[in-house]
Design a protein around this nucleic acid. Structure first.
Lengths: 299, 299
DNA sequence: CGCGTTTACGCCTCACGTAAACATC
DNA sequence: GATGTTTACGTGAGGCGTAAACGCG
């Protein structure tokens, strides 16, 4: 039984399949398979059931998993205790939503390049639910997602809030300065699809105002949404930084509303027992650089 | 960093020297040295100071030791959780005093041979203080010693008591049936050297009876002591089983005493963090077979 | 047939022991 | 010189990737 074998077992047990786990370990699938086989041989126990299409944990495998986690944690702690102030290094795949990608992510990348050059950041942009799934399957080391995860094997750390404003094109019902039910009936609501964090904000607001769902036009790209809003296609909400920028250029106007939009809390999420310094260091770096209020870089 | 390296480090750090640690791991000294060197390289830290005659732990080495212990313990636990009911195997060097060796040790050996054939018992007979030292230096896995160890890195488990009787040859002051100060002044006290557990019993008794030390003749062999007592060389104490045997053969008579001799408690001792099943299983086997009251096999 | 896992094979590194060298007392 | 640790070196097992085979949907 070796630490390498246990590490291979951990990833194989918690990733969607061996290929993904192997990728995570910078290993070929066949080598990973052999490591698992050798671990099984050394413990004289079958850890995976291969009779099905996918390898799944046996009872013994389930029994081993928490032990393996503990062992790897202690091993990591051991490395930290002894080799203090060693440069953190490795690839870190970070999942982010489009909003994060367009506001503070470039800042984070710049910071990491100068402060922690041995960390190779690999950003992956997708909607929150996809990122969450990727975290579970082992495709990501960590992700910044709206809200906390309710999944037991994902740990969430609050890192910041994004604020939103109601906006409309200047020529869209120019007399009206406030978001009303009538306005929402007249013009479609342009927003991200359900499942994105922003939807929660909108649903909260609609509920608080006792309004029915207006016509809803969804697209998974903030850029497209902003474009549609500027075109006067409908009304919608934008992150405060964006709203500010477009307002300054007179491309959009900010609408008031009787009830404020709740801010949206974002959390840094990672696999609960993944205590690698790579992850904790990345969390610290994200905390240093997160800022949802900045204007998007592309404008 | 591998488990093998940490195991090598643990033994190298806690044994008297690398050679002994290597022997313990069934490894050549050079291989052990290389393992340590590789561990140092992988952690990028010097663990031993080689400028002195003997390699001694550096500050980092001292920091690593408890972590290594914890890691090895968790590893051992992990093996146990998964591979339950696996046969325990390995060489187990057990230190015992002569009294244990001559009473219950053969019984233990027989038991182990039939019940746990994969454990190779290697008994080593010496006086308690030597066994204790060997435990500390790593020369022994475990030992049965009189009294508990006060050393922080040695764990003690009480396993039984030995009772002793005052004896004398039938022709030695035949009128006297009780141990008195006068008797002890007339005849030398034949006993084990100071440092053996039996000395404590005698000192307790002398103190309780407010007696001064009589003339004392010491020898490190119970066989020699019994021989001298039978010869009428002096008076002394013998384990109850021995006293019973010699009394039955009329070679010795048992003397009464106003104050009883305290029984002597024996403990099973091992290195505190050595949780190998080999050790715990041996402890259980010793508990099953320990019996200081049996007559010695050689009589 | 596609997807996921294992086997076959050639390559090379790594871990071992023997023996000699080195360092300290 | 005795004791204790490291270096040199030849050997064999073990871990790796590529590529082919297997086995279940």
């Amino acid at each position: 039984m070796t630490l390498k074998q246990l590490e291979a077992f951990y990833w194989a047990a918690t990733c969607a399949n061996f290929a993904l786990a192997a990728q995570r370990l910078h290993l070929s699938t066949s080598s990973l398979s052999k490591r698992i086989a050798e671990l099984e041989q050394s413990l004289d126990v079958l850890l995976f059931d291969r009779t099905l299409h996918k390898a799944s944990l046996t009872e013994s495998g389930y029994a081993l998993l928490p032990q393996a986690v503990q062992l790897l944690q202690v091993a990591e702690k051991t490395r930290q205790v002894v080799s203090k102030n060693q440069a953190v290094s490795g690839q870190c795949s970070l999942g982010v939503g489009e909003l994060s990608a367009l506001t503070w992510l470039p800042q984070l990348a710049t910071y990491l390049r100068s402060a922690l050059p041995h960390i190779k950041l690999e950003p992956q942009v997708d909607i929150g639910s996809a990122l969450h799934q990727q975290l579970l399957e082992g495709g990501l080391d960590c992700a910044v997602v709206a809200g906390r995860s309710s999944h037991p094997s994902i740990a969430s750390h609050t890192i910041g809030q994004a604020k939103f404003e109601w906006v409309a094109a200047p020529h869209l019902s120019p007399a009206i300065q406030e978001v009303t039910e009538a306005l929402l009936k007249e013009h479609p609501l342009v927003t991200l699809p359900r499942g994105a964090g922003t939807s929660r904000i909108l649903d909260d607001w609609l509920l608080a105002n006792d309004m029915d769902l207006a016509q809803r036009f969804t697209c998974n790209s903030w850029g497209v949404i902003a474009g549609l809003l500027i075109e006067g296609f409908g009304i919608g909400i934008l992150p405060e930084g964006w709203a500010r920028s477009f307002k300054r250029r007179k491309q959009l106007r900010v609408l008031s509303s009787a009830v404020q939009l709740n801010p949206l809390s974002y959390t840094f999420q990672h696999r609960r027992h993944d205590d690698r310094r790579l992850v904790t260091t990345t969390l610290a770096a994200v905390r240093k650089n997160v800022d949802f209020s900045v204007s998007p870089r592309l404008l």
